[in-house]
């Protein structure tokens, strides 16, 4: 007991611990990066898809969106929203809605890919709308990240943050972080304008430009931050908190050790 407490008080032990902690935290942050796999999917719906989708819709969606998706007081009409909208809302887990709130939250996906496809096929039959994008236009490696970055800063960064870390909107709504979002969902969000997001149709940002935006997002996501852990990419606030808590914390630990009497 005595030996332990003595060793714990050992000046080197404190330093070693601090360094270890710093190294570990830094290492973990630096190493953490999530790889993202593009989902391959070719979109050509059969009549059967639409039929199956109608059944699924009647069972799962019609209570809010109304029979025939014509809308009700609880949910908007889905006539003309297009397959892309369904694929985004259902495929990202936002729909079916878990509860009322400022906006739909992402949660575990409720339907299989097959079912999502069928629902999309059904809604697509109700009226013309944005289709699920081709795989070709989603290929980030074909895009120009520099052009995409410029478009992203002008059109997206004010809500989603320059590093796509997300940001606040009014009254509890927010623009989510785009980290981990699939190429397809990013594209679909731009063409359909989910929730309060404006629509960026092809006349505004061409499909090639959209691919550039995706290329930019995937580039910064994959490369990570050159300087080490990114502290959430939230800017000066997280940096300030970090220096006050961690930076000054370590400094204070050293000052206490420095001015304490040796045993």
């Amino acid at each position: 007991m005595k030996a332990l407490s003595q060793r714990r008080r050992h000046p080197l032990a404190a330093i070693a611990l601090l360094l270890m902690a710093l190294l570990m935290v830094g290492g973990i942050y630096s190493a953490a990066s999530s790889a993202n796999q593009a989902q391959a999917q070719t979109e050509s719906f059969s009549a059967n898809d639409a039929e199956e989708g109608e059944k699924l819709f009647a069972a799962n969606c019609a209570s809010c969106h109304g029979l025939g998706a014509s809308g009700s007081s609880a949910g908007p009409s889905l006539v003309g929203v297009g397959a892309a909208s369904v694929d985004f809302q259902v495929g990202s887990g936002r729909m079916p809605l878990q509860m009322d709130g400022p906006q739909a939250q992402v949660k575990p996906v409720q339907f299989t890919e097959e079912q999502t496809r069928q629902l999309a096929a059904y809604v697509a039959t109700l009226g013309a709308g944005p289709a699920i994008p081709d795989e070709e236009i989603l290929d980030a490696s074909e895009g120009d990240p520099a052009n995409g970055g410029e478009l992203f800063r002008v059109n997206c960064a004010m809500c989603h943050n320059a590093a796509a870390a997300g940001g606040a909107l009014t009254r509890g709504k927010f623009a989510p972080s785009l980290e981990g979002s699939s190429e397809k969902h990013i594209y679909e969000a731009m063409v359909t304008g989910p929730q309060n997001m404006p629509v960026f149709n092809d006349a505004n940002i061409s499909p090639e430009d959209k691919r550039d935006v995706i290329a930019f997002l995937k580039t910064i996501e994959e490369q990570g931050s050159p300087g080490g852990a990114d502290l959430g990419s939230l800017g000066p606030v997280s940096e300030g908190l970090f220096i006050w808590v961690a930076g000054l914390g370590v400094v204070i630990a050293f000052t206490v050790w420095l001015t304490s009497r040796s045993s």
Binding site: V25, A157, A162, A163, G228, P236, A246
Partner: peptide, 30 residues
């Protein structure tokens, strides 16, 4: 040690100054 492992002011994220764009979470230093 902090500078080795933690990014500060990632200017490459923000892009060059242009009066039109802005980033969510625009704050000054603490």
């Amino acid at each position: 040690a902090i500078s080795a492992a933690f990014t500060i002011n990632p200017i490459w994220n923000y892009g060059p100054y242009d009066p039109s764009p802005v980033s969510a979470g625009t704050q000054p230093d603490w």
